[in-house]
Amino acid sequence: MSHILRIENLHVSVNDKPILRGVNLVIKFGETHALMGPNGSGKSTLGLAIAGHPNYQITEGSIWLDDVNLTELEADERSRAGIFMAFQRPVAIPGVKMADFLRHAATNVRRPDRKEGEDLIAMREFRKELKGKMEQLKMDPEFARRYVNDGFSGGEMKRAEILTMAMLSPKFSILDETDSGLDADAVRLASASIAEIGRDKMGLLIITHHDKLLEHNPPQFTHVMLGGRIVETGGAELARQLHDHGYDRIRKAYPDAEAANQQMLAKEEPLAV
């Protein structure tokens, strides 16, 4: 398989305030990319813009999955085209069981042309598959019967997102701070799970502040975002260096981007997703 996710000169605004100011990024199927950067630099915005959140207006540039222009598609169409995002704070859907939610999601993603009301994947077959994936991820089978993210701990939410990724087997996954709010053991487990599910089986864009999540997922590329742009790209060693020494060097090296970042932080604090 050879798929390419290509982001070209992407400008994104939220409520008419520019956040991304020309992002270029190419991810090939099977590659792991780390996206790092200080708060408010636009990392989550990039993820949400790729996933198709309606509040993130693309004012310039484009996002291509192979020869499909994703910017023309609704969020559900992007999902069915092979894009997945694991959210930093996934929302709860009370009254809807994980298993039912995932069955419907998996059916739509695997049969992109399915019309509303057509049959879902056979229950028995799906349950078996779900059970297998949950065992692989060392999850309690009871999880499938709980309501989507309802009353989940931080760790449970992140694991539910990884389980969803496993069931949907996307071509490209964006993992937005899948380590935030987790203790060291939980991060290690998440890191191992991502590697098990995603490594070499999709393109990964891992958004993180730390290098722990990258332990089992050494990136071929590390990108540093500041002020809505990718200001530097390196290998796995760049992620380590940023984790050990912080962003002072980056901030000094790119004063214009740093100024933009400070400006956005002041303005966009309530919108940071």
């Binding site: 996933a51 198709g52 959140h53 309606p54 609704e74 969020a75 559900d76 992007r78 999902s79 069915r80 997945f84 995002m85 959210f87 996934p90 929302v91 859907i93 939610f101 419907h104 999601a105 998996a106 059916t107 739509n108 993603v109 509303e116 969803t164 949907l168």
Partner: peptide, 12 residues
């Protein structure tokens, strides 16, 4: 949006 990002259409 969350459900749409998992392949559900808006009305689903």
């Amino acid at each position: 949006f969350y459900a749409q990002s998992r392949g559900f259409t808006r009305s689903e």
